[in-house]
Amino acid sequence: TQTDLETVFADRIKDFDKEEVRRWYNGYSWLGEKVYNPFDILLLFNKKIFRPYWFETGTPTFLIKLFKQYNYYLPELENLEVGEELLSNLDIDDLYVENLLFQTGYLTIKDVERRLYREVYTLSYPNYEVKVSLNNFFLLHFVSDRSLKDKTENELEKALRDNQIEKLKDILHRFFASIPYDWYRKNDLESYEGFYASIVYALFSGAGFETVAEDTTNKGKVDLTVIYNNKAYIIEFKVVEDQPEKTALKQVEEKKYYEKYLGKYEEVYLIGIEFSKKDRNIVDFDYKKIQEVN
């Protein structure tokens, strides 16, 4: 617990930023006080560098295969609502992705609410280590070239750091072009909006950006919001048959998803991305800076 960390390990924790330690390794919860991953903490004290120590002890290949098999919408893992019967299910012949993620520690309990006759649990990543690492591993299952994945994430960070939003189109286009054709055989991934959204979400999350998926507003839900350098990038995804329809940016403009971010960040940008079923890639990329009205 936080108290244990600051008392039992007071002589060790003084050498680190406590908030950064909490962000990386705290967050596991079973309806009580949040706890740290002791494996991570001990190795952090020994190595004196922040790394995904626990995640590196195993490779969740089986989980990634289930993501693909069920066309799983990866951003949903940020706020996943499940019933008690799913969390307690241990039937090897009746496995659910959500149950496996919880039992293996990739998700933890964020909240619980009584609805009618049952308890509804909200699950989420426990901490920064798990969120970044799981999304990175997910990407490597689609593109095995680690250098390409790392290059793409570095280019995303540089583009947003330099405020060159127009470069995002080419960066993302190259990454989707690198996904082997075999991934699209005997399935309909090219028609599945969640597939493209999951890849983009994993890229930003795996790169370490602060991401908010399916963020609720009073007008609906934002597909993906990326926060960086006190700027908010609100992204809407659409899948079209072939040619651009110019509907993604239009939707996020008309529904004013951006209003909750005005005044909270220095700059707010809207980004609309359309993917073609035929080309299996981006066919339209529009963006707009929102000027706050005082």
Rank of each mutant, 00 (worst) to 15 (best):
F9P: 00
K18F: 13
E19K: 14
E20H: 13
V21H: 03
N26A: 12
Y28G: 07
S29W: 01
N37R: 06
N37V: 08
N37G: 03
P38H: 04
F39V: 07
F39W: 08
D40S: 12
L42V: 10
L43V: 00
L43G: 00
K47C: 00
I49E: 14
R51T: 00
F55E: 04
T59C: 10
P60A: 08
L66S: 02
K68G: 06
Y70T: 10
Y70F: 14
P75I: 05
E76S: 13
E84F: 15
L86I: 14
I92R: 10
D94A: 11
D94P: 01
D94R: 11
L95A: 06
L95E: 10
E98N: 05
L101Q: 00
G105P: 12
Y106A: 02
V112K: 13
R115W: 09
R118A: 12
R118N: 15
E119Q: 14
E119D: 14
T122Y: 01
S124W: 06
P126T: 05
N127M: 07
N127C: 09
Y128M: 07
V130Y: 04
V130K: 02
V132N: 03
L134T: 07
N135G: 05
N136T: 14
F138T: 00
L139A: 02
L140S: 04
D145K: 09
S147Y: 08
L148C: 09
D150P: 03
E153L: 09
A159P: 11
L160R: 01
L160F: 09
N163E: 13
N163Y: 11
E166H: 15
E166V: 14
F176V: 01
A177M: 11
Y181F: 12
D182I: 06
Y184G: 05
K186R: 10
D188Q: 14
Y192P: 02
G194A: 04
F195K: 00
Y196L: 04
I199N: 02
Y201G: 02
A202M: 07
A207N: 07
E210Q: 08
A213L: 08
D215V: 07
T216P: 09
T217L: 12
T217R: 10
N218H: 15
L224A: 01
L224V: 07
V226E: 00
Y228R: 08
N229Q: 11
N229P: 00
K231T: 11
E236I: 07
E236C: 04
F237P: 00
V239N: 00
V240P: 00
V240R: 00
E241I: 13
D242K: 15
D242M: 14
Q243H: 12
Q251Y: 10
Q251C: 10
E254L: 13
K256L: 09
Y257A: 06
Y257Q: 02
Y258L: 03
K260C: 05
V268F: 07
I271C: 05
E274N: 10
F275E: 01
F275D: 03
S276Y: 11
K277I: 07
K277H: 04
K277C: 04
D279T: 15
Y287C: 10
Y287G: 06
Y287N: 09
K289S: 13
K289F: 11
I290S: 04
Q291V: 14
E292R: 15
